[in-house]
């Protein structure tokens, strides 16, 4: 239990829009241990990014955390004052976003942005802060960091920019990093470099990582644990090996079947019929009911989480 870093219980994040309440995160529970890499997988609109934002306290109106609890090292973080949030973000948990061009300020040099991030949390001299910045840039694999730190974001390539964003996330040695699709916009070889960088960092520093992605194949090689999200709920979670080898939920099964792979070359891919429901109008009962080949009357009732001894969770009336 002492190993537990983050414990989310029945978290609900709703967006109160004019069209109705969008239940982006609808009662999810998830725990992350120290040094653990957890993957959150889901399609667009499944609520995986909002989960990340909720942990960082970055949900803006009309969104609101409507219920549940998030405990970080045993302490509740929902309901912190804005001041407490500010010392929490970046220092204890930091987040890396999908598009590094949007997260870096284009009119400030990298050193300005990085030194600012350190001095926001600690009272250190500018010189000392710069030294740490250069060190961190070297750690994420930027060649000649002492010169490159004086560049503007546009002088970096996409992969390098993402490294800078990761370096900024690492500056204050957080215990947990939330990475929201950080490699989606990058090429395979650059994605490989970033994945390798993150993997070594986690192994070296004992930092935990939540990797949010739509790409099951990335999770397969990287994560220890995986949670599959669908329409605001985690519908299956557990050890990566077990979930990918023997998926219990029909949705996970369908997702895995729809990934093109060498075993099925030229064969039709498995199709999940229909599309993800609108979060404003989630069907009653099991939200996957409309697209599920096994659905029957009992699925009109919301399925509960069934958790087996080894921590494998599934939310389905007819697990495979």
């Amino acid at each position: 239990m002492s190993n537990e870093l983050l414990d989310i219980k029945k978290l609900e994040t709703f967006f109160y829009t004019r069209a109705g309440i969008a239940k982006a995160v609808n009662g999810i529970s998830l725990s992350v241990d120290k040094g653990e890499i957890v993957g959150i997988v889901g399609e667009s609109g499944s609520g995986k990014s909002v989960t990340g934002f909720s942990i960082m306290g970055l949900v803006d109106p009309p969104g609101e955390i409507a219920g549940g609890s998030i405990k970080f090292k045993g302490e509740e973080i929902i309901g912190q004052t804005e001041e407490e949030w500010r010392s929490f973000r970046g220092a204890k948990v930091s987040m890396i976003f999908q598009d590094p061009m949007m997260t870096l300020n284009p009119v400030l040099r990298i050193d300005t942005q990085m030194i600012e991030a350190i001095r926001a949390h600690e009272k250190v001299s500018k010189k000392e802060a710069r030294r740490r910045c250069v060190e961190t840039l070297a750690m994420v694999g930027i060649p000649s960091p002492a010169e490159r730190i004086k560049s503007y974001p546009h002088q970096f390539s996409g992969g390098m920019r993402q490294r800078v964003a990761i370096a900024i996330g690492l500056l204050n040695k957080p215990d947990l990093i939330i990475a929201d699709e950080p490699t989606t916009a990058l090429d395979v070889t650059i994605q490989g470099q970033i994945l390798s960088e993150m993997q070594t960092l986690c192994r070296k520093t004992g930092m935990a990582l939540i990797w949010i992605t739509h790409d099951l194949t990335v999770i397969a090689g990287l994560a220890h644990k995986v949670a599959v999200m669908y329409a605001g709920k985690i519908i299956e979670s557990g050890n990566v090996q077990e979930v990918l080898d023997e998926p219990l939920h029909p949705y996970t099964h369908g997702l895995i079947g729809s990934v093109p792979s060498r075993n099925k070359r030229g064969q039709p891919l498995y199709q999940i019929p229909g599309m993800t429901p609108s979060l404003i109008n989630i069907p009653e009962g099991c939200s996957f009911r409309m697209r599920c080949p096994h659905a029957d009357e009992i699925c009109m009732k919301e399925p509960d989480e069934t958790i087996s001894d080894n921590g494998r969770m599934v939310r389905c009336h007819h697990p495979l």
Binding site: S157, G159, M160, D187, V188, T189, I190, Q191, G192, Q193, L195, S196, Q199, D215, L216, T217, V218, A220, G221, L222, V240, Q241, L244, I256, V259, S261, R262
Partner: peptide
């Protein structure tokens, strides 16, 4: 060869990523 090595696959677990150095 490097490109093929880089492709993440469902059946590749717990990979030690050994990436191609440098950029295009």
């Amino acid at each position: 060869q490097a490109l093929l090595n880089e492709v993440p696959r469902l059946d590749k677990r717990d990979v030690d990523f050994a990436p191609l150095k440098g950029e295009i």
